[in-house]
Amino acid sequence: MKNIVNANASSATPIELTDKAGAPEPAIIVPPYWLDACKHLVKKDRVMKRLIPQFGSTCLQSRGDAFSTLARSIVGQQISVKAAQTVWHRFAALPAEMTPAHVLRLKIDDMRAAGLSARKVEYLVDLSIHFDAGRVHVQDWQAMDDETIIAELIAIRGIGRWTAEMFLMFYLTRPNVLPLDDVGLINGISHNYFSGESVSRSDAREVAAAWAPYCSVATWYIWRSLDPKIVPGA
């Protein structure tokens, strides 16, 4: 188990928890809405009432910075998790720092040698240009609504709506994202609500009506119900 900090607390102090060996683990910063969301979902949805208690103190966590988070999502497209980790570590070792300016100084041949396809090199360069030129308003994102941020992100080559939604969930920790293009979410709804029968986007929206305004949290638990160890974007 990991130490937990409630981001709502006026003085956030990690709860003293340890791993199996007795060593302390890094604190988890709980999104400020998480506990309220769980209470809401347990009250409103029969499946959430069953799922949420199964996963204890685990929660959605924000990692890294905006640029590296998006760069990593591009690197990992259409390859296995293991392959993505290998290529990312090779690519991340190339620049002096993982910043747009440093990535733009890299040689294309070196990026290709790290395992990146020509298309992904193009995507990473375009991402770097958008950030370096200030075409994305990182400092303003906290005050912007989800759809406006998505519109900014999908203007970058290699970033589609699903990637943008994962970014909203796992970097900005937005509470009410419903990624209907996510296969895991659709499969999880099928498994938990329809006894394995085929589920349409319309069916998924109908189920998720009870989740609002905490669709991100419900989606997290749906993913966990399929595989407790693997969650998209985590």
Rank of each mutant, 00 (worst) to 15 (best):
G64C: 08
V5T: 07
G64I: 07
A212G: 04
A12E: 12
S195T: 05
G188V: 01
Q139W: 11
A143S: 15
R46T: 15
A151N: 12
P228S: 06
D132T: 12
A114R: 12
G64R: 11
I149R: 10
F131K: 12
H191Q: 13
L172D: 06
Q78F: 11
A114G: 09
W211K: 13
G184P: 03
R157P: 02
A209K: 14
R63N: 13
Q54A: 14
L60N: 08
F131G: 04
V121Q: 10
A209F: 04
G134H: 00
T148Y: 03
A12Y: 05
W88H: 01
S216F: 02
H40F: 10
D19L: 13
V30I: 11
E16F: 02
V231T: 14
I29F: 14
I156C: 06
S73P: 03
A23N: 12
A212F: 05
R157Q: 04
D126W: 12
D182L: 04
W223H: 13
T58E: 14
I156T: 05
K39R: 14
I186M: 00
A21N: 14
K229S: 15
R112Q: 08
Q61G: 01
I149L: 10
W220D: 10
T69C: 08
A9T: 07
G134T: 03
V136T: 04
S10W: 04
I186H: 01
T99A: 07
K39Y: 11
G115I: 12
H40W: 13
D182W: 06
P175F: 02
C38P: 10
A155D: 06
D227Y: 12
E25R: 15
Q142N: 15
T69H: 05
V75E: 01
A27I: 05
Q54V: 14
D109F: 11
F131H: 01
S190T: 00
D19K: 15
A23G: 04
P31E: 09
F55N: 14
A208M: 03
P213M: 10
V125C: 13
V81T: 13
L94V: 07
S198Y: 05
V231Q: 11
S57G: 15
D109L: 15
I28Y: 03
Y221V: 05
K82Q: 07
A151K: 15
L60A: 10
A210H: 06
D45T: 09
P26K: 07
L127S: 05
P53L: 10
N3T: 07
V47A: 09
N6P: 03
K43N: 11
Q61T: 12
P95H: 07
G22Y: 09
A113W: 09
L70F: 01
F67S: 09
L70K: 11
R135W: 00
T58D: 12
L70H: 02
A133P: 01
W162Q: 05
H102S: 12
R72H: 02
R90I: 00
A155P: 00
P232R: 13
A155C: 06
M169P: 01
I79D: 04
L94M: 03
I189H: 03
E165W: 01
F194Q: 00
P100R: 11
F194E: 02
R205G: 00
N3A: 13
L168E: 03
E16T: 07
I189V: 06
E152D: 06
Q139K: 15
